[in-house]
């Protein structure tokens, strides 16, 4: 989780904690080496392809009568620099992998992250954003907080549900009434419920 650029704690295989993400910090067997390297440079290759697509897009940008460098030059410079950096990284990774060395710079390797839990929390967050559109912010938030706490191991629903409701209603009051933010109210029946609720607490 540590992003601190100035420090780098080199992970040698001995201190790497057990966990699914730490696997690639150990030197792989010779056979799957190339395949492993290809998997590791996959995102960079994809980004390189994206660079080409974006560069092609800039062809349509024209300056018109305004003069100056035009709207295409700047993104082209960025795309060029990005492509150079990506090619460098890909070459370095391939050379290192084929030479039997893995580059250990996975910052999160020390965190003992569970991929399943990461997927769950990402799904939950995306679901929450979608839910706010349809259910309205207040209802969606109450559900999200309860679920989030439950999946975090806070299983005492008699405690977490009232807490979630208090949080969502309290936040709605503060942000709709005091700081005016028009938080989504949802569609149909949920819109009406949210509306009545906000009226009840005096936010509208």
């Amino acid at each position: 989780m540590h992003e601190a650029p100035p420090t780098r704690t080199t992970l040698d295989a001995g201190t790497a904690p057990p966990g699914d993400v730490a696997a690639h910090t150990t030197t792989p067997e010779p056979r799957p080496r190339l395949r492993h390297a290809l998997r590791r440079i996959g995102p960079e290759l994809a980004a390189l392809v994206a660079c080409c697509v974006l560069y092609w897009q800039t062809a349509g940008y024209t300056a018109g009568s305004t003069g100056g460098p035009g709207p295409a030059l700047y993104p082209r410079i960025l795309i060029g620099l990005l492509a150079v950096a990506l090619v460098f990284l890909i070459v370095r990774e391939l050379r290192a992998s084929i030479g039997g060395r893995a580059i250990a710079d996975d910052e999160l390797a020390s965190e003992n992250l569970s991929r399943r839990r990461i997927a769950v929390v990402m799904g939950m967050t995306v679901g929450y954003v979608i839910a706010t559109v349809y259910l309205g912010w207040v209802i969606a938030t109450a559900c999200f907080v309860t679920l989030f706490l439950y999946l975090s191991g806070k299983r005492r629903l008699w405690l977490t549900i009232p807490l979630a409701v208090a949080l969502s209603v309290g936040f709605a009051f503060i942000f709709v009434k005091v700081v005016y933010i028009s938080l989504p109210t949802g569609f149909g029946i949920f819109d009406l419920i949210t509306f009545r609720l906000l009226q009840l607490i005096g936010a509208y």
Partner: peptide, 20 residues
């Protein structure tokens, strides 16, 4: 950053490109 400049540059360019 004391890590590879290439990675910092990549991240920087991605950020700048997204902002365009």
């Amino acid at each position: 950053g004391e890590r590879s400049v290439a990675k910092s540059l990549t991240a920087l360019m991605v950020g700048m490109l997204l902002a365009t």
